[in-house]
């Protein structure tokens, strides 16, 4: 079994507790307007447009498939910019064994791994196998998820994983549809289920620069459904890496301190005890 990996950050201090290896899987069922890494959304369809545009001869077509010649790559990201499919040719397909070798190399320096994406829950069988191996190294396994796939459907995964960091992008279904082009029923089910099994580490929401009502709806909805001691991260929208469509609809500016502090105050007033602004 192999899984498409977009990126590995060997030392990350912002993806869960302690120092962690963060592993970003390719593919995501959402299409969020503010996605910072839109190239992680789809699998490559081998259309070859990036190959024609690569200035460094780092891409070629072999048997109808786009191949990335990493040693030639100058990391200019032209391939990402010209991709019409929200994808990337720069993908590694790893087996669990290969990934575990990388983790083992740095096991003494990390508390554990965090799987992210894209949406890592697109690859549940792979995750189960991976986590079982990582546990043998004595390390923790955290899942960073958008909540689209139901955790309750994957008891084996829930058993072996340590904790989940869950995005709740919007609480109202209509808001969620506008932002992510998907329904959020499962997200809210997961929000409850993960608390029931004691495996919710934190919840995150990106707060928009120009829609205070939407921000407030989401904030209130989440807090009404969240243990007040579980960390809730309010993340300022930042326009970097956001595609044109998103910039047009959400703005080309960072969410103001005033707005984020206003939301913080509301959260505290509602009795939440663990709010972090990012």
């Amino acid at each position: 079994m192999k899984a498409p990996i977009n990126r590995i950050i060997p030392f990350s201090n912002v993806d869960g507790p302690g120092n962690r290896m963060a592993i970003f899987f390719q593919r995501c069922p959402f299409k969020c307007l503010y996605c910072h890494n839109p190239e992680t959304i789809n699998d490559c369809i081998n259309c070859g447009i990036c190959v024609q545009n690569c200035p460094a001869a780092a891409l070629k077509i072999n048997d109808g498939k786009v191949v990335w010649l990493e040693e030639n790559c100058v990391s200019c990201d032209t391939c990402l910019q010209v991709c019409p499919n929200l994808s990337t040719p720069k993908i590694h397909h790893y087996t669990v064994k290969e990934l575990v070798e990388k983790i083992a190399f740095e096991k003494d320096f990390i508390s554990g791994i965090t799987v992210s994406g894209g949406e890592c829950m697109e690859h549940v069988p792979f995750l189960i196998e991976l986590f079982n191996e990582v546990k043998k190294l004595g390390k923790t396994c955290f899942v960073d998820s958008n909540g689209h796939h139901l955790f309750v459907d994957h008891p084996q995964l829930c058993e072996v994983m340590d904790m989940v960091m869950l995005d709740v992008k919007a609480y109202e279904a209509a808001d969620h549809m506008v932002l992510c082009a998907q329904d959020n029923q499962n997200v809210l089910k997961n929000l409850r289920y993960l608390q029931d099994i004691g495996k919710l580490y934190e919840v995150r929401t990106v707060m928009l620069p120009n829609d205070p009502q939407l921000n407030e709806r989401t904030l209130k909805g989440v807090i009404a459904n969240l243990d007040p001691n579980i960390r809730y991260k309010l993340i300022k929208y930042r326009p970097f890496g956001v595609r044109k469509e998103g910039l047009k609809k959400l703005g080309n500016t960072i969410t103001s301190d005033d707005e984020i502090n206003r939301l913080y105050d509301i959260a505290i007033k509602l009795g939440h005890k663990n709010i972090v602004i990012i």
Partner: peptide, 20 residues
């Protein structure tokens, strides 16, 4: 800058470095 606020992460690294 981000490492300023995550001493636990640095502790992992230093401990691992010494161990090796």
């Amino acid at each position: 800058e981000t490492w300023r606020d995550t001493p636990e992460a640095l502790a992992n690294i230093i401990e691992g470095a010494m161990k090796n």
